[in-house]
Simulated scan of single mutants.
Amino acid sequence: MNYTLGQLRVFLKIAQTMSITKAADELHLTQPAVSIQLKNFQQQFDVPLIEIVNKKLYVTDFGKEIARSAEKILDEVHAINFRMHAHRGQLTGKLKLSVVSTGKYVAPYFVADFITSNPGIELLMDVTNKAQVVASLEKNEVDFSLVSVLPDKLRVEKVELMPNKLFVVGNGQQRFRKTPHDKSIFGSIPLIYREQGSGTRHVMEKYVLRNNLPVIKKMELTSNETVKQAVIAGLGYSIMPLIGIKNELENGQLQIIPVKGFPIKSNWYLIWLKGKPLSPVATAYLNYIKAEKDEVIAKRFGWCERY
């Protein structure tokens, strides 16, 4: 046997996600690179690790055994690394974050310098919709969550990070006047919604009901990126967070449609369970956020003030 830690890591992720494409995304590798690693790993065994049936990937019983062993080996490697950093007097451990889907445009900038300055810390970040983020927080599976809508039924502590603005958005080919439209415009522009459980949808629906807007619901899609591409393609309009459409606004693929009462304003928050004992890593991160958030905002998000 001559397998590498990289091959173990790749195969474990494939077994967890049941997909080469998803494994590549989560490992930040290309799909061909993951496929090559899998092929090289498989060549060291006479028994198949996976099977492809009707284009769907299945892990064999033998593959599941190997995946369990791979997880134990990688856990031991992490433990060795943590002990090495601890011996040097460095902060070690895992920082676990759950982030709402549109928060992926925000969260990396609020962790990058902290992780770079503390190489003994492993970052585990799960990006999903608001309902699942709140569920992971309630189950005490994470240290912190990043949300734009505070949970109703959980007692949490919070740090306000930065403003969140939502605008009415259309593709760059449509012509709209520059003076603000009144709410009657919603009777003529079909809206694309996010899925149930999305924080963006929650804010959008709350605003629509409060202002009795005459909306036409065009379709429902399951990610901010999918909504963005649908709007660019001319399939409809949407109410979207500014933070996720910077490039498309700058290159003319999207435009903000001026409407009275917009933008809808909320805030991004870092939250954690009230009364939760924080680990040394989580405590250090919270102190970092409180001390450095203003500098991160000025450096990375100053462009938001133009809108």
Rank of each mutant, 00 (worst) to 15 (best):
A230Q: 00
I216R: 02
K206Q: 12
S238Q: 05
N251H: 14
V215I: 10
I216V: 10
R194F: 10
V231C: 00
F186W: 06
V203I: 12
E250C: 15
K206G: 15
G234E: 02
K218M: 06
N224P: 11
K228Y: 07
T226H: 08
N247V: 15
N247R: 15
Q196M: 15
F186T: 03
S223C: 01
P241G: 08
D182V: 13
M240Y: 02
G244C: 08
L221V: 05
I245P: 03
V227R: 00
I243R: 03
V227H: 00
R210G: 10
L242H: 08
T222W: 14
Y207F: 06
R201S: 05
P190L: 01
V208R: 00
S184F: 11
Y237M: 08
R210W: 10
T226K: 05
K228M: 03
L242D: 03
Q229Y: 05
V208T: 05
K183C: 14
N224G: 14
L221S: 03
I243G: 03
I185K: 04
M240I: 06
L254V: 06
N212D: 11
I192H: 01
G252Y: 11
Q229C: 07
P241F: 04
H202A: 14
H202N: 14
I239C: 00
D182I: 12
A233I: 04
Q253R: 13
I239P: 04
E205V: 11
T200N: 07
G197W: 07
E195V: 12
K246E: 12
L191V: 03
R194A: 12
E248F: 11
K218R: 13
I239S: 01
P241C: 09
L209S: 14
K206M: 11
E250W: 11
I216W: 04
V215G: 01
K217Y: 11
H202S: 14
G199P: 13
A233E: 05
I239L: 01
G199Y: 02
P214Q: 05
E205L: 09
S238G: 10
N224T: 13
L191Y: 11
K217P: 10
G199H: 08
L213H: 07
L235M: 06
L235Y: 03
T200R: 00
G234D: 01
A230Y: 00
G234M: 02
K217L: 10
V208G: 09
N211D: 08
S238H: 02
I245F: 02
L235R: 01
E225K: 13
Q253P: 15
I239D: 00
I185F: 10
I189K: 02
L191M: 10
K246W: 09
S223P: 09
K183D: 15
I232D: 09
L191K: 07
E195T: 09
G197Q: 09
V203A: 09
S198L: 02
N247M: 15
N212K: 12
I239N: 00
T226N: 09
R194D: 14
L249N: 11
L213F: 03
L191N: 07
P190R: 08
N212E: 14
K218H: 11
I245V: 10
L209T: 14
K228Q: 06
I189M: 02
L242Q: 07
Y193R: 11
L221C: 04
R194H: 14
K228N: 08
K246Y: 08
S223T: 08
E225V: 10
P214M: 04
Q229E: 10
Y237R: 01
